[in-house]
Amino acid sequence: MTPWILGLTGGIGSGKSAAAACFDALGIHTVDADHAARWVVEPGRPALQAIVDRFGNEVLQEDGQLNRAALRTRIFSDAEERRWLESLLHPLIGAEIRQHLRQATSPYAILVSPLLIESGQYRMTQRVLVIDTPEEEQIRRTMQRDQVAEDQVKAILQVQAAREKRLQHAHDVLVNDRDLHWLQQQVERLHQQYLRFKGGQP
């Protein structure tokens, strides 16, 4: 039987990676959209060559890997270049995600994506779980984890889908404002529910 797909998302510092790790520990196949975004631009892949043809060798590191910081600088202030890059990468990332999801043998599989809603990747899923955290807690965790300034975290929050928009798409919401042990218990509870679902529906 083909596993149904759960989309797992949440804002920066919400704990979506920790929640995904809990599902993974329960034997559920997880695919991370961020990893897929890195795979499609590895050396030797056509997308990397297309990026170099467009922006030149300055977007490469000495070892031939994509220099993400240099590319970000090039597209950050140029909306047209950013759209070109998105139109190149989004279909490839989608194909990569689908390929990895097809390898799942668990009763359901999970697509973990910070931009699940904004990128339209939620259309690949039958159900959406949002890890939700009060904004002040997101800021505190991210500053602590990444050693970055508060205004930088707030800038990232601005780019990600507004919390309300994420919650509109949610079938399930897990408010992650306690410790890891509590999060594990909540994931276990949802997991037991999901095992009984057919195609993502009770």
Rank of each mutant, 00 (worst) to 15 (best):
H29W: 15
V128L: 07
K16Y: 04
I97H: 00
Q201A: 12
Q126M: 08
L48W: 04
E135M: 10
M1C: 13
R127T: 10
T30A: 12
P202D: 13
E188C: 11
G199P: 04
P134N: 10
V175S: 06
Q121P: 00
I51C: 04
V130L: 04
L174F: 08
P91I: 09
A18H: 06
G64E: 10
L71Y: 04
D32E: 11
E86L: 09
L48I: 08
A79F: 04
W182C: 11
D132G: 05
G10S: 07
A170S: 07
A37I: 07
K16W: 03
H169T: 09
G11K: 04
H35N: 13
I28W: 00
L174I: 15
R141M: 10
T9Q: 03
N67D: 15
E150P: 01
L6Q: 00
T9G: 05
V128P: 00
W4L: 08
L167Q: 06
D32M: 07
I28N: 00
S17P: 07
F23P: 02
L101C: 06
V159D: 08
Q192G: 11
H169M: 14
F23S: 08
R102P: 00
R196I: 06
L195N: 11
P91Y: 06
R45A: 09
Q126C: 10
H171P: 00
D172P: 00
L190M: 13
A79M: 08
V112L: 15
L85K: 09
E42I: 05
L85D: 04
L180F: 14
A33H: 04
E150H: 07
R72H: 08
P43S: 09
L71W: 03
L26T: 04
L60V: 10
Q160P: 06
G11H: 00
W39E: 14
M124Y: 13
G200S: 09
